[in-house]
Amino acid sequence: MGLFLFSPGDDPGPDFGALLRRQDPGPSPLLAGSPDPLTVRHGTTVAALRYLDGVIMAGDRRATEGNTIAHRAMEKVFPADCHSAVAIAGAAGPAIEMVKLFQTQLEHYEKVEGVALSLEGKANQLGQMVREHLPMAMQGLVVVPLFAGFDLRREEGRIFTYDVTGGHYEEADHAATGSGGRDARTTIKLGWQPAMSRDAAIDLVVKALYNAADEDSATGGPDIIRGIYPVVATVTADGYERVEEVEVAERFGRMVEQGFGGGGSR
């Protein structure tokens, strides 16, 4: 790895992705026209909602490979930079690679330019990465992220959802995606209120993931035997902060004591 110097007309500027492409034109669209979709690891349900201090983002821990469980403690919620978070659903390999590139890109921009990108700019960047991934998505390796952050200029939390073409849409209050996204969304929709407290918001998002796991086989519920609970993180004016797993476990325990999670079949 050398020193990358370019003439002014040819300089990639603060764009880390463009810098990487200068060195390596990128993978050729492999498996073109392959008849069977690959069986790869998939991450499943992630959700985000706005509350009083900013946004909360959460994801279950299961990764599946076809109809088998590939991983029980996968992380799907990541800090994108100090004031934003990204969660992933879809093919795990390319999704995690995309998050790594996104994190590097945001930090790279900040260091080269001396100021961080605006939240809108970050959301746009991620959209471009999803769009570049489209050829792979066409072959079944779909990656759909969820992006949320605290907008320091507007002083509020904001949430963005994506589709495979890289289109990004700002959501008013909450969003969920992945195989159990529909079920999670229903729970959040019923329980969401403007200006929720941190406690109420964490409880709601944990409930939403529980309900998603209840209905969707690819979504993992809380695993009390192994002590694996959903990843929950908050993004506020003070930055990204992961909610301790112990706290999530306690909250879940309290909810069960209060009679949550009934309604099984006879």
Partner: peptide
């Protein structure tokens, strides 16, 4: 400043790879 940017590029590329 040109060398500063080249240094950031070197470090980020290396850390990424």
């Amino acid at each position: 400043d040109q060398l500063r940017v080249a240094g950031i590029r070197h470090a980020d590329t290396k850390g990424f790879a």
